[in-house]
Design a protein around this nucleic acid. Sequence first.
RNA 1: GCCUCCAUGGUCAAGCGGUUAAGACAUCGCCCUCUCAAGGCGGUAUCACGGGUUCGAGUCCCGUUGGAGGUACCA
Length: 485
Amino acid sequence: MKVRTRFAPSPTGYLHLGGLRTALYCYLYAKKNNGKFILRIEDTDQEREVEGAIQMIYDSLHAAGLHYDEGPDVGGDYGPYIQSERKDSYLPYAMELIEKGAAYPCFCTKEALAERREEATKRGETFRYDKLCSHISKEEAQRRMESGEPYVIRQNIPLEGSTSYEDVLYGKVEVPNNELDDNVLIKADGMPTYNFANVVDDHLMGITHVMRGTEYISSTPKYDLLYKALGWESPQYIHLPVVMKDATRKLSKRYGDPSFEDLLSMGYLKDAIVNFIALLGWSPGDNREFFTLDELVEAFSIEGLSKSPSIFNMEKLTWFNSEYIKKLSADEYYTLALPWFRQVFGNTKMDLRRLAELTHSRTEVFNRLPEMVAFLNELPNYEIELYTHKKMKTNSENSLQILQECLPLLSALDDFSEQTLHNALAAFITEKEYKNGLVYWPLRIAVCGQQNTPGGAIEMLYLLGKEESLRRIRDGIQRLSKEAI
RNA sequence: GCCUCCAUGGUCAAGCGGUUAAGACAUCGCCCUCUCAAGGCGGUAUCACGGGUUCGAGUCCCGUUGGAGGUACCA
């Protein structure tokens, strides 16, 4: 049988990382088995639907490279792929269930239910629907349904025994029937609930493997009961552990955790994110950790999936990102870095290509770039203590002397190419019998105004150019002279 | 509370009855070096606890503890 998996998000906001991972695994499993990966939008709760969320799902999936074979915006033979557009296809199956005694219409009002629920809670009990309406005779039920009285259709769960199914990952999952509620299948507005729509659609769309989060692990017996009542073959169930923010909280926007889109706009590379996410809860079994999407398809297997929740480790993602950045060609890196440089410099005659070469191996995430290079645009107001460095054997006095000696030397240079600067300074150092650090340290501090810079004194002098460099050196001399008085 | 599931370093994790318990991130140290990175080398750190089963348990079973998920006319 041809494998068909589906990713079925509800359009309630951005695509969070747990969702992205579920989509990834669905995609990988389908592709690994030469099957189809399908996108279905579960918008049966119109109240919760967020404007633009469907588009965001399309965009995120495409951005991640998870191209689906069938879906609302790409078509397919099993459409429509948006549940609200399938509204009419659910009721007949619900009627069939009523006919078979596996469901019944319920006329209890929300208010009455809330009241009974409250009472049960007061007694310290978990409220489950008391099957009140299941005792109404078929004839009366029929009459009331036709009279226009509002009603829902509930699943009729057996009172005794237990229901189990075989999860591919977790093995046998068994739940006592008295723990299972007679859930609403069709709401008063005629729209199905998730509980019903997912079963009907998975069957109608020929889904062979249902991969979804573990939040459904203990309600799946109910769904399985529905398959059986309808005489349908159950799919394979593969529940996936949740992605956590830390040991006790799951990843969520509420705590300010980034979505996939957020990460992209921060300057994380999608390949790095996908690679990292794939390894969160799945292991190839060997020590390999760098994978393209195609390589993931090749390596993926259910056996490598983990059963316990895993914590989303931002530091490791960042490490992956810096590794992916290092793999970029100089041109690719430059293209990606340029907008971030522009934030700082606007239009500049500075050699940004050279700057990019220098920042390339120092970039972990692109959004850290502006801060890294801001000093080139404007000299920070720094403390002269920076001139003092034990290992370089520098202090305010000898730094002042070095700067004063370098000023005429650099002023005399025709051009400020790195080669010229290097030759001149090397000759100067040899002639004076100085140590490299004694000269380069004060120069770099004067010209950069901060301790750490993406490159050495020569590179920084070159980037700043002659005029600005000399200005900054004079500024340094002034700061140090003031101190000397 | 009840039900279901899970449990190897700080984090991701390999391990499928016999291992010196891999590897990666993080962390620490050293080398390189005009700073910071990058790169190279090395160190610290894990089987939650208690009972079984077995010649032998991180691996199997039971319990405890801890954690997660569920408990809606949400998905």
